[in-house]
């Protein structure tokens, strides 16, 4: 039996998560309205929202391994919240691109997506995130049953696409995408490891 977290701890944690996730957006808004964005305002917005989305996505991916290690099952309550915050930043990222970079022109967007691999993977990741955000409600979880779990495994593909999007965008200095890529790989590998363990244990008599 896993040790539970106190109710108060969970409330405090929720406040911390909301504050942490909203801060980058609030700072961005303040900078935008006080003319503090970089010389390329659109790039600045895109880089900030893109990086924030990626970091929150990685934190989301850390929930399950952390839960297994600590036994704090309540952590799962934060997974949807984090996932939706990541999607919120991806949405800001994508809308900025559609409006300012491509002037909402379907032809320009299509050309960019088809021609440039880093845009292709970024666009795909965005598209794949939409059904996950839509089906994040209790109603959809109930309706989809076991298929919900399968559908939401798309998050692993999305993480990899997001890393590729970052890596292929960078001109020469690949330190940042390598760093976040390593974190992503560790988090994905952490999922394989306990499963392998469980399989090994399954062949032996379980300790009572």
């Amino acid at each position: 039996m896993a040790k539970g977290l106190a109710r108060r701890t969970i409330v405090v944690a929720k406040v911390v998560v909301w504050t942490a996730c909203l801060t980058p957006f609030v700072v961005l808004c303040i900078d935008a309205f006080t003319n503090q964005l970089a010389a390329e305002p659109v790039k600045d917005i895109q880089h900030r929202t893109g990086l924030t989305a990626l970091i929150i996505l990685l934190v989301t991916l850390a929930v399950t391994p952390l839960r297994r290690v600590t036994g704090w099952n309540e952590l799962v309550k934060f997974r949807r919240l984090l996932g939706l915050f990541s999607f919120f930043y991806v949405l800001c990222h994508a809308v900025t691109y559609f409006v300012f970079d491509q002037s909402l022109s379907p032809a320009l967007i299509a050309e960019d997506v088809v021609k440039h691999p880093w845009v292709t993977v970024g666009f795909t990741a965005f598209m794949l995130m939409i059904p996950l955000a839509v089906t994040s409600t209790q109603g959809w979880i109930r309706r989809l049953g076991s298929r919900w779990t399968k559908l939401h495994r798309l998050i692993y593909a999305i993480a990899i696409l997001a890393i590729l999007h970052f890596l292929w965008l960078v001109k020469k200095d690949v330190r940042d995408p390598y760093f976040y890529g390593t974190v992503a790989l560790v988090l994905l590998a952490a999922r394989l490891w306990p499963r392998a363990q469980r399989r090994v244990h399954a062949t032996k008599p379980l300790p009572s």
Partner: peptide, 19 residues
Amino acid sequence: VDHPRWTQAREHRAGEFFK
């Protein structure tokens, strides 16, 4: 003549939102 990874047909002038 585009860069392999992005178009060179348009540009962002510093401080401007639209290309």
